[in-house]
């Protein structure tokens, strides 16, 4: 009995090891990819952020410790970028999560498959357009003589009013949010639709038998059971918003004022590429990385305490 059980144990460990090896083999490409394109740049940026390094200089960069970080924390320009990033992020991702959820629920109520498919394609199409093309389209819309003013003036019956989509500090921030919202909402709708489809219909049937109306079903069944998807979507939306660059860059190229929409990524570009201060730009990117890490951690923490299972 004893030798038999030992043999059995050895066999069991062997299979586990073999499985683990295969697992590692499958994971290695991802690790290599991550190491090359994420881990290495992060470490490199962290290292570079400790130096006064100019892009074109062939001289060895001067070590300045935390000098770049100290400079940034004292810089009004950097704090303006932090402000612009937070205004954009909270002004975009919160409405995006709420509205994409509302649209997803609306889609789930549409029974005709063809009509539902048509809506899904319509919502998702902007997500496949590149940021550059999207911003170029919206630059035309926001031109003073473009469709933006024409639509708003037609609806509000205010002919000739220039809403200064790009020529006003507040409006240009709103304009970047509109573009981003339009572009990415379809993507998050698809995620919510997928989340909604995982909720068993038997729960709704039971609730209906028990006398629950659609409103009660939504708040008592859909929302709690959709929580993992809401957390996923809100984290993804927030991280995307924190990394926003293309729209702001193209709007500035199109003549919009830089300061109101000078998000951290745009400031990194200006500092590193235009002004050639790669050390300072690296410090900014590390700060942005830390901000993203903190927000993700906070969202995970706040969502974990109320997990629901069925």
């Amino acid at each position: 009995m004893k030798p038999n059980s030992l043999t059995h144990k050895r066999k069991y460990i062997g299979i586990e090891r073999i499985q683990a090896r295969w697992g590692i083999a499958f994971v290695i490409p991802a690790i290599l990819f991550f190491s090359l394109f994420s881990f290495y740049p992060i470490l490199n940026a962290l290292y570079t952020s400790l130096f006064d390094k100019r892009v074109l200089s062939l001289l060895p960069p001067t070590f300045m410790g935390l000098g770049n970080y100290i400079y940034l924390f004292k810089s009004a320009d950097f704090w303006n970028s932090v402000r612009a990033t937070f205004v954009f992020t909270f002004g975009t991702f919160m409405p995006m999560v709420v509205v994409s959820l509302a649209f997803a629920v609306f889609l789930s109520l549409v029974k005709n498959k063809k009509v539902r498919g048509m809506f899904q394609i319509a919502y998702y199409t902007p997500a496949v357009i590149s940021s550059v093309v999207a911003a170029a389209i919206w630059l035309l819309i926001f031109d003073p003589r473009g469709l933006g003013n024409q639509w708003v003036n037609f609806i509000l019956n205010t002919p000739g009013v220039d809403n200064k989509w790009l020529a006003d500090a507040t409006m240009v921030q709103l304009s970047t949010m509109i573009v981003y919202f339009w572009k990415y909402i379809g993507y998050f709708i698809i995620l919510f639709v997928t989340g909604l489809s995982t909720i068993p219909s038997s729960i709704y049937e039971a609730a209906t038998i028990d006398g629950a109306n659609p409103w009660q079903s939504f708040w008592r069944i859909t929302m709690p059971l959709l929580k993992p998807t809401v957390v996923l979507v809100s984290i993804m939306a927030m991280l995307q918003c924190l990394k926003t660059f293309g729209t702001q860059y193209l709007f500035v190229q199109g003549g919009a004022p830089r300061a109101p929409i000078n998000v951290i990524t745009l400031n990194i570009y200006t500092t590193g590429i235009r002004n050639q201060r790669i050390g300072r730009a690296s410090a900014m990117s590390i700060i942005l990385f830390i901000i993203m890490l903190i927000f993700t951690w906070v969202q995970f923490r706040t969502s974990k305490s109320e997990e629901v299972e069925y």
Binding site: A167, D168, A169, A256, P257, R258, A259
Partner: peptide
């Protein structure tokens, strides 16, 4: 930035 701020940002 200075010109844009007076022309467009008030």
């Amino acid at each position: 930035s200075a010109v844009e701020s007076v022309m467009l940002s008030g």
